[in-house]
Design a protein around this nucleic acid. Sequence first.
DNA 1: ACACATTTGAGCAAGAGGAGCACAAACCCG
DNA 2: CGGGTTTGTGCTCCTCTTGCTCAAATGTGT
Lengths: 417, 417
Amino acid sequence: MTFGRQDLGLRSATVRRANLSTIVRHLHDRGPMSRSELVVRTGLTRSAIRGLIGELVAAGLVSESPAEPVGTPGRPSPLVSPEPAAAVVLVLDIEVDSLAAALIGLGGEVLEHVRVPRPRGHSSLADVVADLADLAGIVRLRRPAARPEIGIGVAVVGVVRRSDGLVSMAPNLGWIDQPLGDRLAVALGPMVPIHVANEADLGALAEVRRGAAIGADHILFISGEVGVGGGLIVDDRPFTGVAGYGGEIGHMPVNPDGRTCRCGAVGCWETEVGSMSLLRRAGRSPEEGRDGVDAILAEADAGSPRAIQALEETGRWLGLGLSGLVNVLNPRLIVFGGLFGRIHPYVADIVEAELDRRTLAAPRGLVRIVTSKLGAEAPLHGAAELAFEPVLADPALWMGFREIDAPEIGKMALRRC
Amino acid sequence: MTFGRQDLGLRSATVRRANLSTIVRHLHDRGPMSRSELVVRTGLTRSAIRGLIGELVAAGLVSESPAEPVGTPGRPSPLVSPEPAAAVVLVLDIEVDSLAAALIGLGGEVLEHVRVPRPRGHSSLADVVADLADLAGIVRLRRPAARPEIGIGVAVVGVVRRSDGLVSMAPNLGWIDQPLGDRLAVALGPMVPIHVANEADLGALAEVRRGAAIGADHILFISGEVGVGGGLIVDDRPFTGVAGYGGEIGHMPVNPDGRTCRCGAVGCWETEVGSMSLLRRAGRSPEEGRDGVDAILAEADAGSPRAIQALEETGRWLGLGLSGLVNVLNPRLIVFGGLFGRIHPYVADIVEAELDRRTLAAPRGLVRIVTSKLGAEAPLHGAAELAFEPVLADPALWMGFREIDAPEIGKMALRRC
DNA sequence: ACACATTTGAGCAAGAGGAGCACAAACCCG
DNA sequence: CGGGTTTGTGCTCCTCTTGCTCAAATGTGT
């Protein structure tokens, strides 16, 4: 069942726009493919494809290479490739213990990339923005842009309002209601649209487009270090909630008798499955962070009962919380990122067993768990996808035809952000 | 941000189809409106609207009344109304303690309706199907159809696979893996498409289209009696999970030390907020059902401390579970249906207080709770919306033009059900 | 009562974009 | 080297929306 709501009427021009979008999106998502492959995938006729590709080539968004013989009978079809330099986005990533910046081209190619460690603990908004501006300066210097960037994407470990990039809460940074989006816009040049989003939401997007969940229509990405975040993709659409605040799975109440969470509530899931609880269970200081977790995994490899037990206990809580999410969301795939990606091999059996015990048979039978493929760089790729979205949704806007017409514009203004 | 994924190309005919759909949907959702109002709402030109309306009138799907003077200057615009008899759906509802059937016309008008009590407890699939067939016979007899029904919608208290109407689990009926959809198709005549869905999912749809949540873009409908179900609507699209199994919020684990649930797991939310726990807390037999709950409410009105305490305790667990859902889903509106609708006035303060304590500030600030408007008939209306969806999505198919073209058909087959 | 402004429907020509067909080009195979 | 196959090219046709002009129906002001 479709339920393709649309209040506004379509016009003829919309068709061309949508078809351009379809082609660019295919190339961006799945890489270079032959013209005839595009015909098959889009269902458009050869004539239509030809016209559209021609326009895209003229605008420089894609390029055609002269056709390579493939061994099958018939005239070979030229290869159409996205042109990375034609549309470049700047992406930034604010993680618990690192900051990163990158330039990513159309098609997802990482043109430049730099990541620096960040001291754990609180830092002011101004400091972080300054550091990010420096990183952005570095990657921009390394690769002077032929064309101006078409957008900026930012991933941050925190609860973010999509509309303006206000960080409502980021315990790892010590932030409450910090206007990250606005400050970054000033620091980086306010010329291009800037999109700020939660790191787990973007991780989910990245895994679906270029990672462990390619082609999956309905995935739950869970990612954690100290805190726990989740990202949901349904029908290839990020599920962000009404303001972008969705996906805070770390703050599901799972244990009324549990510990007090950083958010103030008691018994949140992240108090049982975050890195601190694992470290505590293994008899370590909760402040040891990532290195401490690695040490636990090494101990478990060596057969330490305490480490193994700590991992098992964490696995049980992991499975318990996941069972609730599976019952509520009925996803096809769960992708373990961050901390969970690292401990996955150690806790997989326990998690699956717990899911078997607690999840309804119907959704249980459909869901699989896999480890993140993009790892620590997932949010960066997701941020790129976010920043690319306007080009993918309407390539015509970036091809020189900036004509304006009424209903479509209204639609865009309504739905964008 | 749109993220309007579409793999397939559009063709010119799609535009007309989409525009017809837009118009019919507006009329179905919001009732009769003037032609000029349609111009404004759809953004289409007068010429386009004229042509489309003309076609719809010719096909009998809508009708035009001669224009009523409204007191403003200018030529008055004729009123366009959906024609209820032009498209009729049969809807069925299997509830804990009742069965219902109805005929509903385009625009949502209830043409016929009958509801009969159902003895609590288990009944065989065959019995229920036979009873429903009888009810369907009654409403069909009362109103001999001018045109054949365009679809059948079925709401059921249970976990349902959307694709074929298999009821994976329905504790109230004692069903496991019962092929409700197939059997109903046989019993009712297999000529029209039959759509089976969970009662809470359909309640959500109904409240959004015609109830307490009209116009809300992102709502969570929670409904319960013995069990607890949830329905989610995002951007006017029902969120059903990958197979329709989503929304089973009653089986989120909230209390590791709690009771064993009917699903076999321990500490599911419905063991704390279902009617049984309320009855138990009030010192009654958990089997008393709806009448027992009404008695508790009467006692609370009369000032009984035990009844009030029982309601408060239930309210606390209600708020606790909701806080998790709000953190994960970030909805704009929560609609209380069924049991929760009835106890809402008694538990509202406690629930809100609990939400304040446990929900992240950002999503908390955006969410409101309201009581269901459609009450017990919500699932029936939702089932109608489900059954109407094909007509709304592509009125042309129901207007005599049954021409087939390749990519669109592929798309429909893919996405439908 | 009458002229005028305003809003809207009607009808028609124009423009845009995809579909479909015929033909040519490029490849494999024997 | 010729036949079969696949695909690009170029053209016309068809569909659908748009834009414009004119007419119709109403309220307003003198």
